[in-house]
Design a binder for these strands. Structure first.
Length: 560
RNA sequence: GCGCCUGUAGCUCAAUUGGAUAGAGCACUUGCCUACGGAGCAAGUUGUUGCAGGUUCGACUCCUGCCAGGCGCACCA
């Protein structure tokens, strides 16, 4: 059993418009889920959109569409799926699904199980989503944690919605900041060995983690480098520090449930050859010029507000230059679409990197840059401040330890990405109803628990035929309607590139379930047929919650 | 000064990307435990959607101008 009634309706309306030449424009046919139940299960606003082209009042158009739609649905043998269609001012066509169609939702969930809500696209896009990509100069911050939560969940959702998705961490292991890291570690090393009259490097990293690493260096190398400040030694220390820190980052992310398909090292892959190639390509397109001893890229030709330096007057590349080469390599590796997830301190960077993508012959939309706004931590009403350089922060590791992985993942996804997020550590730790994570997980656990009780009658129950007609109460219909909207919610997430709508949805679904639960007893040995039907219903709810939580990267526990 | 993001109930936030009467949770008031998990449910109160215009059948949503907050404006990365 599988059909897409919504699509059939959209197609039918398209046909009607074409057959009766209502407009020559390409009108987008939308089917919405009205908030008010009195407006039906689905609502079509096409009549209002056709007012200008038809030069008739919207109500009249709606009536016409409605008549023709009824004929179409009959032709397509779908009339049994519709209970009634109403026309409402100013021109809405409100569709009420029949009980039969509602039951089909449950049948579909039973049949598709873990694949409910999944789509199989014929023309899959190959998407590369790059996120976190924190410099290996220190542990991950809360900002990275949010980027990780969003990136991982978004990748899951896009893959579930039929795209081919690859997750990548770009390791910025080359350049000045890595040298500073080496200098910092060398300082800590010499300091620890008791060397006096040395100054902490100007741009150095102050975190305690380098003091720990210095000890490891002493354990491994003794005091060999006590008086050795050569570039070679700095490099050695830098590599050691970067590798150790990167290992730590990888572990932290793993503990957070975030894993990458590729760890792409700048040092290893974005070679000078690659960078020079891309500069030559830009030069051949006449997009490179010299000024004041530096080499510039004409990014203004593609919407940037000023041109950008790609080779400084000292002969070194700017940060942008290898990044342009990196983005070219991503496209060359066969990806149709790139998604970069960055922190808010990078929004000034979007235009220039997009300009570069355009300059290399790609569409502006082929590179999507998402800015994830900061999450500010608060504990007992007091904000917790963070700064990497000053070395005082709460790391991702500490966050996981304090509130747990599930709460952290869910909280980071509760707000829209472009909105700042207030992360209340106390709330996230609470095991109570005002903690949304527990609220949703509790619904899942509660359903599991009911099945546990019903288990002893399993064989008897399974012999009873499912009578969907018994699921006629308002609370049942609300649940079914909600589950029927699951696919739309995922579509919205994929469209907005933001999992937030899914967190909101799951909270609503959980609320619908808790409401149903307290009003209707699910399992009762004396009412076999009713128990059977209700168990099927809540089984479906459990299924949808499980899929949703999985896409968010949050566990769906059987017991809590 | 320029650019990006934000501004919705006392607080934290929704609102299916332009839909119908702007909704949840917290807080406050009141009920509900001899039934499958009370980590729960039900009911009540809460609004000039920052302000002022504009676009249209319809605006929290889009456009313009203000106001407030955050972030960014390098030959740093």
């Amino acid at each position: 059993m599988s059909y897409d009634l919504k699509n059939i309706i959209i197609q039918s309306i398209k046909e009607i418009i074409q057959e009766h030449a209502l407009t020559n424009k390409d009108v987008l046919i939308e089917i919405e889920n009205p908030k008010e139940p009195q407006f039906g299960d689905w609502s079509v606003n096409t009549a209002m959109k056709l007012v200008k082209d038809c030069k008739k009042p919207p109500l009249e158009i709606a009536k016409f569409l409605n008549e023709k739609l009824a004929e179409k649905l009959k032709q397509k043998k779908m009339e049994s799926k519709i209970a009634k269609i109403e026309i409402k001012s100013p021109g809405f066509i409100n569709i009420f699904l029949s009980a039969n169609a509602m039951h089909d939702v449950l049948r579909m969930i039973l049949e598709q199980a873990n694949d409910f809500g999944k789509t199989n696209l014929k023309n899959k896009q190959r998407i590369l989503i790059e996120f976190v990509s924190a410099n290996p100069t220190g542990p991950l911050s809360i900002a990275h944690a949010r980027q990780a939560a969003v990136g991982e969940s978004l990748a899951s959702i896009l893959a579930f919605r039929g795209q081919t998705v690859s997750k990548e961490y770009y390791i910025n292991d080359y350049g000045n900041q890595i040298r500073n890291l080496g200098l910092s570690l060398l300082f800590r090393y010499q300091e620890k060995l008791g060397k006096k009259d040395i100054d902490f490097p100007e741009q150095g990293y102050k975190g305690d983690y380098l003091i720990e690493l210095a000890q490891k260096m002493i354990d491994a190398e003794g005091s060999n480098f006590l008086n050795d400040n050569s570039e070679q030694t700095v490099k050695k220390f830098a590599e050691f520090a970067a590798n150790s820190i990167l290992q730590g980052i990888e572990q932290e992310l793993k503990d957070f449930g975030v894993e990458f398909d590729q760890w792409f090292s700048q040092k290893d892959h974005v070679t000078n050859d690659k960078i020079n190639q891309v500069l030559t390509e830009l030069k051949n397109k006449n997009l490179i010029y010299e000024l004041d001893g530096a080499t510039w890229f004409k990014s203004t030709e593609f919407g940037d507000d000023k041109d950008r330096v790609v080779i400084k007057s000292d002969g070194l590349f700017t940060y942008l230059t290898p990044d342009i080469a990196y983005h070219k390599m991503k496209f060359d590796r066969g990806f149709d679409k790139l998604i970069d997830i960055l922190g808010p301190d990078h929004h000034g960077y979007i235009n220039r990197i997009k300009a570069a993508a355009c300059a290399l012959g790609h569409n502006k939309a082929d590179l999507e840059v998402l800015i994830i706004q900061l999450a500010t931590l608060s504990r007992a009403g007091k904000p917790v401040k963070m700064s990497t350089r000053a070395g005082e922060y709460i790391t991702l590791e500490e966050l996981i330890e304090e509130v747990g992985c599930d709460a952290a993942r869910f909280f980071f996804l509760m707000r829209r990405c472009d909105s700042q997020l207030d992360f209340d550590l106390e709330l996230a730790k609470k095991h109570s109803m005002d903690n949304p994570v527990y609220y949703v997980q509790y619904a899942h656990a509660r359903i599991c628990s009911i099945f546990e009780s019903a288990n002893q009658f399993k064989s008897e129950l399974e012999n009873i035929e499912i009578n969907f007609d018994l699921l006629a109460e308002q609370e049942c219909l609300d649940l079914i309607r909600r589950m029927n909207a699951f696919s739309d919610v995922l579509e919205l997430c994929a469209l907005t590139l933001d999992p937030q709508a899914l967190t909101t949805y799951l909270r609503q679904l959980a609320a619908d379930f808790h409401g149903f639960y307290s009003k209707h007893r699910v399992f009762d040995e004396s009412k076999g047929e009713l128990s059977r039907a209700r168990l099927v219903l809540i089984g479906c709810v459990r299924q949808v919650i499980a899929i949703g939580l999985k896409l968010l990267g949050v566990s769906a526990p059987d017991k809590m």
